[in-house]
Design a protein around this nucleic acid. Structure first.
Length: 453
DNA sequence: GTAGCCTTGATC
DNA sequence: GATCAAGGCTAC
């Protein structure tokens, strides 16, 4: 018998250096965590559940309305909602090994190490008693304001997780220190109050804004939520390189597989952006999931398109990895749907280019898409509607009340929606013909959207 | 099917 | 050699 592992069963797996982990609760069901599993700290039962589901490619159906509460006592009742929650909190499909090889370490090692270091840092801060309102207002804001949907304070979905545990992009750190920290901002407010509070006085210029006095404050806030493009590029490139090396070993490389993985990684970054974004993180988890399931494809296409408009060169496609692919190298023989998608996408890029849409406007558009009040059965429908209106107002103000420009932008949004529907259909077809790689977030999103009311 | 315990093996 | 996150086994 291995001398190290059995200690776990006796509750001794974590030494004093790691005992901070023992205090954590499983982000899926709230049970005690037993270690890092498939990307984050979870309990033993959710680890096993996730493994069984992915390995056996299980498909569940929810007998209720896909909003079942998942806790320690009820986690067995609805595997559909449990698996959705596993994915939502960040359990990684790709960490389940297709070859079922035992032992060893996966590529998440450094991520676990970073997470541990951050938790240690947090523990040290708590012990030092430095969490005063003045020194860490973002934490106070989070803890007071956000409906955690019944989750424990140490859950990955709890706002304090985002503040302390997520590898936030640099812009986000600035955001934590900006308006939310200022006196009279959103402490102790309801989500509704917060939505209004940040944008109650558009006439008053935001002097702290680095973009100058004409920038509406809300646009600045939206912009600060955006991840750093270079960091994203590095992260996704590294991930793709690892995957390609592994594929070459098994002799199963294909351009389509690579594109799926690229889209998958981009989607992960989009989910991470949403979860850490202003307003969105104040929503109940069930509403967050509904909104994301409804708009993931639009956000994915917008991500690709905005990259071309902001950083791309004429005649080539700029990938999220920073690589440029000349149009002559894009396989136009790939089928009529893909061909049509590319052509329409290019036209939209051209339109947005002519309109000179900038980062600020794209940041607003992302929020307009995310906070879609037409999504059914939202618990906080009013809040979503209000954020949508606020985002629209901020965009209009930013475009200097140029109704023509604003209307053109909104028209582009409807074309974007149509494109995303086409893209989903295309992916569904490829999936049905068994061409999509396994353990892909894209597929999960497709399934989730198909099963939405 | 679930979940607690056990084995494995790459990495440190 | 120790660690620990994978997969496996098995009582329930």
């Amino acid at each position: 018998m291995d001398s190290g592992q059995p200690l776990f069963s006796k509750g001794m797996k974590f030494n004093t250096e790691q005992d901070v982990d023992l205090e954590e609760l499983c982000p899926v069901c709230g049970d005690k965590v037993s270690g890092y599993h498939y990307g984050l700290l979870t309990c033993e039962s959710c680890k096993g559940f996730f493994k069984r589901t992915v390995q056996n490619n299980k498909k569940y159906v929810c007998a209720e309305n896909k909003e079942c509460r998942i806790d320690k006592d009820q986690r067995k009742r609805c595997p559909f909602c449990r698996f959705q929650k596993c994915l939502y909190v960040g359990m990684r499909l790709e960490a389940v090994r297709a070859d079922r090889m035992r032992g060893g370490r996966n590529t998440f090692g450094p991520m676990y190490k970073r997470d541990r270091a951050l938790k240690q840092q947090r523990k040290a801060l708590i012990q030092a008693g430095s969490f005063s309102l003045e020194s860490s207002p973002a934490l106070v804001y989070s803890a007071n304001q956000i409906d955690t949907g019944g989750l424990q304070p140490d859950s990955i979905l709890h706002p304090s997780y985002f503040v302390h545990n997520s590898p936030l992009p640099t812009a986000q750190v600035s955001y934590q220190r900006s308006s939310l920290c200022s006196p009279g901002s959103s402490h102790d407010q309801s989500p509704q109050d917060a939505a209004e509070g940040l944008y109650t006085n558009p006439d008053k210029p935001d002097s702290s804004s680095p973009q100058g006095p004409k920038m509406p404050q809300l646009v600045t806030e939206f912009l600060l939520c955006d991840p750093d493009e270079l960091q994203l590029q590095t992260k996704i490139s590294a991930r793709l390189q690892q995957e390609q090396t592994s594929w070459r070993k098994h002799g199963n490389t294909s351009t389509f597989r690579l594109l799926c993985l690229m889209a998958d990684q981009t989607l992960l970054s989009i989910v991470e952006w949403a979860r850490t974004s202003i307003f969105f993180r104040q929503l109940k988890v069930s509403d967050q999931m509904k909104l994301l399931y409804s708009c993931w494809s639009e956000l994915l296409i917008l991500d690709i398109i905005s990259r071309q408009v902001l950083y791309g060169k004429e005649g080539s496609l700029l990938l999220v990895t920073g690589e440029e692919v000349h149009f002559s190298n894009i396989p136009f023989h790939a089928g009529p749907t893909l061909y049509s998608l590319i052509q329409r996408g290019l036209k939209l890029v051209e339109k947005l280019h002519i309109l000179k849409v900038d980062r600020q406007e794209f940041a607003c558009v992302k929020f307009l898409i995310l906070f879609n009040p037409d999504v059914k059965d939202l618990e906080e429908h009013q809040f979503v509607e209000r954020v949508h209106e606020q985002a629209k107002g901020a965009l209009l103000e930013y475009t200097l009340c140029n109704l023509g420009h604003f209307t053109h932008l909104l028209l582009c949004l409807s074309e974007l929606r149509s494109l995303s529907t086409l893209a989903e259909d295309y992916l569904c077809c490829r999936n049905l013909s068994g061409e999509m790689p396994c353990n892909n977030l894209l597929i999960e999103m497709l399934h989730a959207k198909c099963s939405m009311p």
